[in-house]
Structure formats: structure tokens, C-alpha cells
């Protein structure tokens, strides 16, 4: 494939990855920012979303769109409830101590993975997309007769992939509005800024924590429902989004939601675009090192405040 079309294709693919990553990382960033908790089980809530989506979709025999719609509603709710339960039963009792929560969430990770293996099984299972049309994309080329439009071999996307990008964008924007305009958003931001002061102002910090933890998990689960018609549900699928979300949250700058979204775009897109120029594994190595070096030379992340 020629360079131009290849780059366009890689960019489109990168955008799909970035969209899903932004949602997942947003969930982690929220938990990280407000609760100062490193949730190692975040990827498992993502997995839970995909697995529930499969159960819901396969229980509905009607058109795939109905199954998908139901999954969009049910899977994030389920993941949120499980997360709230985990918060109440475990994290709260640990008083959100950083080291203890790492061990506890590793434990929760094992529990969730094994439960998924026993109920859902070891196979990768697909969920039918609500709609999926292959859309060949045109390309402009300057020839003897000036510009002419043609359809390069392989340059295409699908309607569902475009939908994923749009859906993620809508959620991100509404979430930003929710944070800045709603009362709960205000409370969350207050808790994030200063836990003690929030307490003295009568904010039920523990309830806020529970809800934030649930909301973070629900965002991950929602991202998984979006991706599961493209990639399949599998009980080990949580590792990758966990690592990537972590990177995104740190690169973006701790606690900066805007940074998280920008970093997700950057990392999602660069992964696709670097692959145009190098052999695949080499591209992965370079992309990984690039992330590390960004942090080495800008430890506070892109949007973080420099520590005094």
C-alpha cells in the first residue's frame, strides 16, 4: 500500500484504539485522582464488562442490536456494583492505604479472573456488532489529469468502528460536563483537591469514594462493551488495557482528566502510526521506550503540575 493511504488507515485504527483507551483510562484516572488508589484490578472490570456483554447478548435471541443495547446498559451497571462491593468490603477497611490497596486489588484481580474462567470459560467469545458495514475509503492522487479520486486496495473501515469513535467522544464530553456542571461532579472535585477540608464541609467522603470506584469500573466496562464486537471477550483480556491505562494516566499527569484524554489519543495514535514506519515488534519497542522517556524527562506528565 502507498504511504498516504497506509498512514490514513493506521490513523483510523489508532483512533479506535485511542477512543476505547480514553474511556478505560478515564475510569482509572478518576479512581487514582480522587481516591489516590492504584487499582490493579481495573483491567478486570474491563474484562467483566466484556464478559457480561457476551452473556447478555447471547441471552437475547432478537436482532444483535437489541443484545448490544442491553449490554450497554447492564454491563457497566454490573461492573459498577461489583466495584462498590469491593470498595465497601475491602478498600474502605484498608483506609485506602497505597501499598495495602495494591495487594488487595491484586487479590481481587485473581478472584475475578478465576471466577470468569469458571463461569465464562477459557475461550474467546465474540459479540455480534449491532451493525457492521465495510466502508471503502477513497484517496486523492495527482495524476496527468489533475487530481482524481480512487479507492486504494485495502483502505477501508467499518461503520461500527466509526460508531465506537463517536460513542466514546460523546461519553467523554458528557462526562466532562458532568464533572464541571453537576453537584456530584463538584463534590468529587472537592474531595480530590482536599480530602480533609471536604470532610469538614460535611461531604460524605466514604460514600463519594464508593461511588467514584464504581463509576471508574463502569467506565472501563462501558469501554469493553464498545470494543467487544471488534475484539472478543476473554478471561485474560484485562491485562493489556490495565497497562495502557496506567501509562495514559501517568503520562497525562496525575489527576488531570484532560491530560488523560490527550495522552490516550497520543498513545493510541502513536501505536498505530509508528507501526507504519517500522517492523511491528520494533515499533512496539520504540513506542514503549518513548513513553518511558517522556516520563523520565517530564516526570509530572503532560498536564501535571511540577512538584515544588
Amino acid at each position: 500500500m502507498e504511504f498516504g493511504p497506509h498512514l490514513l488507515l493506521a490513523t483510523l485504527e489508532g483512533a479506535v484504539g485511542a477512543a476505547v483507551l480514553a474511556l478505560t483510562a478515564l475510569g482509572l484516572s478518576l479512581v487514582f485522582g480522587v481516591m489516590r488508589v492504584v487499582n490493579v484490578a481495573h483491567g478486570e472490570f474491563y474484562m467483566l464488562g466484556a464478559v457480561v456483554a457476551w452473556f447478555v447478548a447471547s441471552a437475547m435471541s432478537a436482532h444483535p442490536a437489541f443484545g448490544f443495547m442491553a449490554a450497554v446498559l447492564i454491563a457497566p451497571a454490573m461492573a459498577g456494583l461489583v466495584a462498590i462491593l469491593a470498595d465497601r468490603l475491602v478498600l474502605k477497611r484498608l483506609h485506602y492505604d497505597p501499598e495495602a490497596t495494591i495487594v488487595a486489588t491484586i487479590g481481587i484481580l485473581y478472584i475475578m479472573q478465576q471466577t470468569a474462567l469458571m463461569t465464562f470459560g477459557p475461550e474467546a467469545r465474540p459479540v455480534a456488532p449491532p451493525f457492521n458495514t465495510r466502508i471503502p475509503l477513497p484517496w486523492l492522487e495527482y495524476g496527468e489529469n489533475g487530481f482524481n479520486l480512487f479507492y486504494p486496495w485495502g483502505l477501508s473501515t467499518t461503520s461500527y468502528k466509526l460508531f465506537v469513535i463517536a460513542a466514546a467522544a460523546v461519553i467523554l464530553v458528557s462526562f466532562a460536563l458532568f464533572l464541571s456542571r453537576s453537584r456530584f461532579g463538584l463534590i468529587m472535585r472537592a474531595t480530590q483537591l482536599d480530602r480533609e477540608t471536604a470532610l469538614t464541609f460535611g461531604i460524605p467522603v466514604e460514600r463519594v469514594y464508593s461511588l467514584v470506584f464504581g463509576l471508574g469500573a463502569a467506565l472501563a466496562a462501558f469501554a469493553a462493551v464498545l470494543i467487544v464486537p471488534i475484539q472478543q471477550a476473554h478471561y485474560l483480556m484485562g491485562a493489556d488495557p490495565l497497562l495502557l491505562s496506567f501509562i495514559v494516566v501517568i503520562i497525562g499527569g496525575l489527576g488531570s482528566l484532560r491530560g488523560t484524554v490527550v495522552a490516550a489519543l497520543l498513545i493510541g495514535m502513536s501505536d498505530g502510526i509508528i507501526s507504519v514506519f517500522f517492523s511491528p515488534t520494533l515499533a512496539k519497542i520504540l513506542a514503549t521506550l518513548l513513553v518511558a522517556l517522556v516520563l523520565v524527562f517530564r516526570p509530572q506528565g503532560l498536564y501535571g503540575k511540577k512538584r515544588a
Partner: peptide, 20 residues
């Protein structure tokens, strides 16, 4: 030869390397 990294979860971006 197109070698895909084992950690990869999406593949379309590698397919343009397939010669015409």
C-alpha cells in the same frame, strides 16, 4: 514476512504491508 508482536490486539494497521 509480517511478524506480529504477541501482545497485539488489533491487526488492521499491519495489513498494508502485504504486497499487492
Amino acid at each position: 514476512h509480517i511478524a506480529i508482536p504477541p501482545t497485539e490486539t488489533s491487526f488492521t494497521k499491519y495489513f498494508p504491508k502485504i504486497p499487492r
